[in-house]
């Protein structure tokens, strides 16, 4: 029987799963849209994963990451819960041990991770602005009625450059519309947008950071050849796209789970039957003090399995919660 390690990345836009084999190779990967319903999408993804694997297997360990990592953790019984920056770095280093710069652009956030001597040396993550992330590109593709998969290749056909304002998604969109209404080529506008996003990314996150080889570009947006080309022009260097660029977070979580289980010897995974359980999230405002915390309660078949959101720990203390595992 095969032993696999399951990595789960519940992001704002997509929920990704990775099955890793004993030799740290990706056996299977799965990418579904979260569509604002992380519980539903995770259950669906798990059911799909179970179906697609034809051989006999057991899960040796589970790791969760992404903005929904805490939620995913209580649903599946995770062995390790890790923030996405560390998870991405782990996966990148596993793929390319001499990586020194990791560019990551996901659905709602973007980050830059600087690696020196094989460890995360510095990083930056967008804080107040989501201009230049996947959701914005999605929206522009939809507005122009171009499938997102083909969006980047339009940029490659650009003949002359059009400058698009990249500081803010609202500015960028109105700039694009103005240029389009004056008759500029759609290819040139899309290329201008790609360049604007790269400019914005480097201004925001690259501040004072030295971009050294090898440069890895991962996250959903790495599929966009227009952005990749814009990055390469900007750096004057080659940018590598790892094979599993779209599921690197999940991959990192699986690797971490494998390491964790090696230490503890056993997994907490609830088994795939969990997809038949009913999970519900309920929220209420605690009235016991003036903090008025928004407490989230996760119910499994009507039984509360986790609560969080309270500052005093009164509610979260009622259930055992797998907390973020430290380094």
């Amino acid at each position: 029987m095969n032993t696999f390690y399951l990595g789960i990345d519940v992001g704002s836009v997509s929920t990704n799963l990775v099955l890793l084999d004993e030799h740290a190779n990706v056996y299977k990967k799965l990418y579904v849209r979260t569509q604002g319903q992380p519980i539903k999408s995770l259950k669906e993804a798990l059911a799909m994963l179970k179906q697609t694997v034809k051989t006999d297997f057991r899960i040796g360990g589970v790791g969760t990451t992404g903005s929904g990592r805490q939620l995913a953790s209580v649903m599946v019984g995770a062995d390790v819960v890790k923030n996405e920056i560390t998870a991405h770095a782990v996966a990148a280093l596993n793929h390319c041990p001499d990586a020194r710069t990791i560019l990551e652009i996901g659905g709602q956030d973007s980050k830059i991770i600087i690696i020196r001597e094989g460890i995360v040396y510095d990083f930056a993550m967008n804080t107040v602005c989501a201009a230049g992330t996947g959701s914005f590109l999605d929206r522009q593709a939809a507005r122009l009625n171009i499938p997102i998969e083909a969006f980047g290749s339009y940029a490659l056909q650009s003949k002359s450059s059009v400058r698009i304002a990249g500081r803010c998604a609202v500015f960028a969109e109105s700039d694009m519309i103005h240029k389009q209404q004056t008759g500029q080529n759609i290819e040139d506008i899309i290329n201008g947008l790609c360049e604007a996003l790269v400019r914005n990314y480097l201004n925001n996150l690259g501040k004072g950071k030295e971009i050294k080889d090898s440069i890895l570009f991962q996250g959903g947006v790495a599929a966009n050849v227009g952005i990749v080309a814009a990055f390469e022009r900007e750096f004057g260097k080659k940018v590598m796209i790892p094979e599993h660029f779209d599921v690197m977070g999940a991959l990192g979580a699986a690797i971490l789970a494998k390491e964790e289980v090696k230490k503890t010897g056993t997994t907490h995974f609830y088994g795939f039957e969990l997809v038949n359980r009913e999970y519900k999230a309920k929220s209420f405002e605690c009235q016991d003090c003036s903090n008025r915390c928004e407490v989230i309660e996760i119910l499994s078949n009507g039984e509360p399995v986790a609560r969080w959101g309270d500052r005093c720990g009164k509610w979260s203390g009622l259930t055992k919660e797998q907390s973020e595992t430290s380094a």
Partner: peptide
């Protein structure tokens, strides 16, 4: 962000 920073 804080957790990642502390990890680092």
């Amino acid at each position: 962000r804080i957790e990642a920073f502390v990890d680092m």
